[in-house]
Design a protein around this nucleic acid. Structure first.
Length: 258
DNA sequence: ATGGTAGCGCTGCTA
């Protein structure tokens, strides 16, 4: 099973690129983030025409997550299950079961500046996700949780450690919040395949950062042990970050022997 | 050298 994750930074702006990419990347499951669409505007028919069932959880202008699958799509759950009736939350989490694998797509809040209310909200969101996963999910089962985590797990995932020291995406509390999730029983699968530095998944649009190699690895596929052990191949598809009007993120693909 | 781009949507916010 090939599972991919891609922050597309507006599915409306990126639909043609996503369709083209599905054609040559051939994922069985694709998790999307930042669709920036309301559910009513989600182009389900375009994906159905390519053989993919889909589920979308969106709010319109910002955020929005989706799962596309050509191997079945069942038991779709949007958001946190502890959500109260009147709680309004941003569309950042969606689950589905695809061919026996429980798959989640996440778009973790950016956090903006360390110490800001947005940063505190990011840490709180990650802790809520940890609570959700550790109480609702089975670490011995087939679980894959992928998306834009807005956290670079280690210094080797950052283009300039000194420049970004203590900043958002690399601060110790963010890394600890992510580690609390992996520590429960999931692995950053990409690192099972590659040890290298300078393998990034996001580059700022500004100042030629992509072409200068100034990026971060913040898009991650986490998998429980039984799944991670069956990972056979992974790739950050930098070609999808090139050309006219790309997303600022590249897609990440992982093959599992299931 | 403290810049720069993209998306949404029409003003400035978000990333």
């Amino acid at each position: 099973m090939r599972i991919a994750t891609w922050n597309v930074n507006s599915l409306k702006a990126r639909l043609a690129r996503v369709e083209e990419w599905l054609g040559y990347a051939q994922p069985d499951v694709l998790c999307l983030q930042e669709t920036k669409l309301a559910d009513s505007a989600f182009p389900a028919m375009a994906f159905q025409a390519l053989g993919y069932d889909s589920a979308h959880h969106g709010e319109g202008r910002w955020n929005g997550v989706a799962i596309l699958s050509r191997v079945g799509l069942e038991d779709v759950v949007a958001g946190f299950t502890d959500q109260s009736e009147d709680e309004t939350t941003e569309a950042r989490l969606l689950w589905a079961t695809c061919d026996g694998v429980r798959i989640g797509t996440v778009y973790v809040p950016n956090g903006r500046m360390v110490g800001s209310e947005h940063y505190d909200a990011k840490l709180a969101w990650l802790d809520r996700l940890r609570n959700h996963v550790t109480t609702q999910c089975d670490a011995t089962g087939n679980l894959v949780l992928c998306g834009d985590w807005n956290v670079a797990p280690e210094d080797r995932d950052v283009f300039d450690v000194k420049k970004l020291h203590g900043a958002t995406h690399v601060s110790p509390p963010e890394r600890e919040a992510l580690a609390a999730i992996t520590g429960w029983g999931m692995e950053d699968v990409f690192r099972r395949i590659y040890d290298d530095e300078k393998l990034y998944s996001w580059w700022d649009y500004r100042a030629g950062d992509f072409h200068e190699g100034r990026g971060l690895r913040i898009d991650l596929v986490l998998a429980t042990k039984p799944m991670a052990e069956r990972a056979t191949w992974a790739l950050i598809d930098r070609n999808a970050r090139k050309g006219k009007l790309p997303s600022d993120h590249a897609p990440l693909l992982v093959d599992f022997d299931v």
